[in-house]
Design a protein around this nucleic acid. Structure first.
Lengths: 259, 259
DNA sequence: TCGTACGCTGTACAACGTACGCCGTACAGA
DNA sequence: TCTGTACGGCGTACGTTGTACAGCGTACGA
């Protein structure tokens, strides 16, 4: 299988029991050598590797090497790489801070949720590269869900809207984080600074910002580029977007005027 | 290089000239055999493959096979797979419909932009699997940018906010599309129907929806699951989110009361 | 003490992107 | 018309990935 870095393939029941650390399936008698590793050790090693060098270097061989173990030994504990990534995800979810509610104003509480999630993506940049964040339904994900729902609980939304509102907020943060990560990697892998880039693309830039073919794009693109110092400013996008998100939710919470 | 399915590595100048179909670098004399393929033929073949069978089967070998050509021949026209994906992206952007403005109300115009983008992700499901949508700055991307900006031009936003607002809308649609794609693939690869899944996970479900440990999650999760018939309903998430997005933008456009 | 369950691992396979160098074609210049 | 050479095409090979499989040795249950 040529799996891209996606989570969770294979038997979903097996994945779930693993996430909840339910009894492993042999485990009847305790014959044979005692396990020298553990699921947690493997997940921690993979996490350390991903945090330090990115998801790209997280291969089964590399994780095994970090544990001083043969690559195939990992498969004694984990069904495959997809499940390992699921475990990594659930682990960082479980370790997120669970503060006291940020205040009586739901806006402050939602802002805190958004900021915490943004910080999560900053602490673990590889999160933005995991293609699927499909709810793993592990203990960490559910604890996170429970905690974050509380920020919006009691403001008068029914439960269905409550769930949708949280999904909306988290989706926004994720999009921002991914965009920010894209900018970072783009900057890293092109060894060009801005000046060199503009010089090298001089002839094309005229076409790109052709005010006749693309009147609005050339005008707005120039203005945005000048304001941010580059084509995309993650910080500004987050600040702007969060205000829109809060205003959008306010319309639902404080007015309830639309369906 | 262990590239995941991401776009654009290598020399960005080369990528840009390719996107704009600028003169290829040899092309001084016209010696040697005439090219039997072309960039466009290759991109079209890759697009057909991706549309039909997903991004996972788009390998250089497979694209070459579709063109009845040896794998390495593709490298005569395209520097590598990353650039090929950039070209695929820009091509589908270029082919998006460019309608007349949807009406005098900016809400209708923004809704049309969102719907068109959602349709794009539905027509090309592999788009959701491309990890990076970093602006390729190809002709298609710029034409799309120019066209979509017009939906929000003239409503009283300054250019910087205009750019940010569009980014905000498109980010929302992208998040929805990715989530929807995740649901689809999850359903496909687990051959379990809902009933079997619930039966198999019976013992774990009690823990997962433990009303003592996770009071809010269990309550809201149950309500949302019952309302949608599953854990996540892409259609509902899109409808809900789009209303929030419009309300969030309205707060900026019609009130301009916050910074 | 012995059988066996089970942890561990070496080897191997299929698939990937792509570097390298050869082959043959067909035009530019003579 | 002839020839040198630029260039399209591609066969081979390398390094990397996830992981199937079979064998080996350990340490507990009986």
């Amino acid at each position: 299988m040529a799996a891209t870095d996606r989570s969770s393939a294979g038997d979903p029941v097996r994945t779930l029991t693993l996430l909840w650390r339910e009894a492993r399936e042999p485990a009847i008698g305790q014959r044979g050598p005692r396990p020298a590793q553990s699921v947690d050790k493997i997940v921690d090693a993979a996490l350390a590797l991903a945090d330090a060098e990115g998801l790209g270097v997280v291969s089964m061989r590399r994780v095994a090497q970090a544990l001083d173990v043969a690559p195939m030994s990992l498969y004694t504990y984990v069904p495959g790489k997809a499940e390992l990534i699921d475990l990594m995800l659930d682990t960082v979810y479980a370790r997120m801070p669970r503060r006291e509610p940020a205040g009586p104003d739901w806006r402050d509480r939602v802002t805190a949720v958004a900021d915490d999630n943004r910080a999560l993506f900053e602490r673990h940049p590889w999160l933005a590269a995991v293609s699927t964040n499909r709810p793993t339904l592990g203990p960490g994900a559910i604890a996170k869900y429970d905690y974050e729902l509380q920020a919006l609980d009691g403001v008068g939304l029914d439960d269905v809207d409550l769930d949708a509102a949280l999904t909306f907020v988290l989706g926004f943060v994720q999009t921002c984080a991914r965009a920010a990560a894209d900018v970072r990697t783009a900057q890293q892998e092109s060894a060009l600074n801005d000046e060199q880039w503009w010089a090298a693309n001089q002839p094309l830039l005229a076409k790109m910002f052709d005010a006749e073919r693309f009147p609005v794009a050339s005008r707005v693109g120039a203005a945005a580029g000048a304001a941010h110092g580059s084509a995309y400013d993650p910080e500004h996008a987050y600040a702007f977007g969060l205000r829109r998100v809060l205003a959008g939710l306010a319309d639902l919470i404080e007015r309830r005027s639309d369906t």
